[in-house]
């Protein structure tokens, strides 16, 4: 059950996110293309829905659903089980256009937005921007298919992130601290105001009581001799690796707050409450190299889903949604 108590520093590895694209998203995109977009292939803002890991054996969800395409001005969908995350959709008009997209370039552009949000202080107000994502697609209306790829951009610098230690939270926290933390996180998760904020501060005072704070309230944590953990909803379920969100979090903490050594807390759930066994506490070391703060700097980025070593981009595997069941013609055939 417990994470391996390896003490030696090692390169930080994280568990990638696997997107879950509902048939309903494909159908909503089909209708959007028919009724609104036409041949317009300019990027449009969409919403993804993120959850921490909720079960020991499967990682948390990143969903695209019909609500994802509802304009954010009228989209009120979001809950503890659906933390909204901003993303970009580029829907091309044909397969050739889809295949000709410069995926590496598009990814860097999204990473640049994340970098900009970090430096402008926008992340403090809306931490979910660290999870910004990108979808490219081609809606083949004739054949009732949607082809797509999803990326979760993560900024890469010319210096490595090092993992100094990683343990199950149950091994690190005292009984009193664990009880207090569970209680505070339960309140955080049941408040409409905070439950959709995937990044937060855990402030454990010398008398073992834990307080959860929003990132923008960092100043309240910087007195006295308490323990400060940088918490986040971790989609991952692996005991030896934190989830993907940690990478941009570490980048943010270093670039914006100049913190090199980060004590982080991977929040994972069981039956809707904190799972101390699965949740991880670890320490990472990272310092950004010079030059990134040049206004024209375009960061390197990684994050196309399913990207494997030695992948040639041209042979990238497409994902597809089959909308045949929405085709009135095929339904008529069934009836006969």
């Amino acid at each position: 059950m417990a994470a391996k108590a390896e003490g030696r520093p090692r390169p930080l590895k994280v568990e990638a996110i696997t997107s879950c694209v509902e048939v309903g998203f494909g159908d909503a995109l089909r209708r959007l293309k028919l009724d609104v977009l036409g041949t317009d292939d300019s990027p449009i803002p969409i919403t993804g829905y993120y959850t921490p890991c909720t079960h020991a054996k499967v990682s948390g969800l990143f969903r695209l659903c019909p609500e994802s395409l509802v304009p954010s001005s009228v989209n009120s969908f979001g809950s503890r089980n659906n933390c909204p995350v901003m993303g970009t959709l580029i829907n091309t008009n044909n397969m050739r256009g889809f295949q000709n997209l410069d995926m590496a370039h598009l990814l860097r552009e999204e990473a640049k937005k994340i970098l900009h949000d970090i430096m402008s202080g926008k992340i403090e107000g809306d931490p979910s921007l660290l999870l910004r994502f990108l979808v490219i697609s081609f809606a083949d209306l004739k054949n009732w298919k949607i082809y797509y790829n999803v990326a979760f951009p993560s900024i890469v610098f010319n210096s490595r992130m090092t993992l100094l230690s990683l343990h199950s939270a149950s091994q690190v926290l005292s009984q009193e601290e664990a009880t207090s933390l569970s209680k505070s996180l339960k309140e955080w998760r049941s408040s409409n105001e905070t439950t959709v904020l995937p990044f937060f501060l855990v402030d454990i005072s010398s008398n073992s009581s834990a307080t959860i704070r929003q990132l923008k309230d960092l100043k309240d944590c910087q007195d006295s001799n308490q323990k400060l953990l940088f918490g986040f909803y971790d989609h991952g379920c692996h005991q030896d690796y934190p989830g993907w969100a940690l990478r941009n979090y570490i980048t943010f903490l270093n670039l914006r707050w100049k913190i090199e050594k980060v004590r982080f807390f991977c929040y994972r759930e069981k039956r809707g409450g904190l799972d101390l066994q699965k949740s991880l506490i670890g320490e990472s070391l990272f310092s950004a190299p010079n030059g990134w703060d040049d206004p024209d700097y375009v960061p390197e980025a990684i994050g196309w889903e399913g990207e494997k070593p030695g992948d040639e981009r041209k042979e990238k595997k497409l994902k597809e949604i089959n909308l045949e069941s929405m085709n009135p013609a095929s339904q008529d055939e069934e009836k006969q």
């Binding site: 994280v14 990638a16 010319n158 690796y241 990684i302 990207e307 030695g310």
Partner: peptide, 24 residues
């Protein structure tokens, strides 16, 4: 656990190169 893609940030040399050699 299935589909466990892990990423290793090898830093230094590989960033500018065209091959994404840092996925594990």
């Amino acid at each position: 656990i299935p589909d466990m893609d892990t990423y290793e940030d090898t830093g230094d040399d590989s960033i500018a190169s065209t091959q994404p050699s840092y996925f594990v």
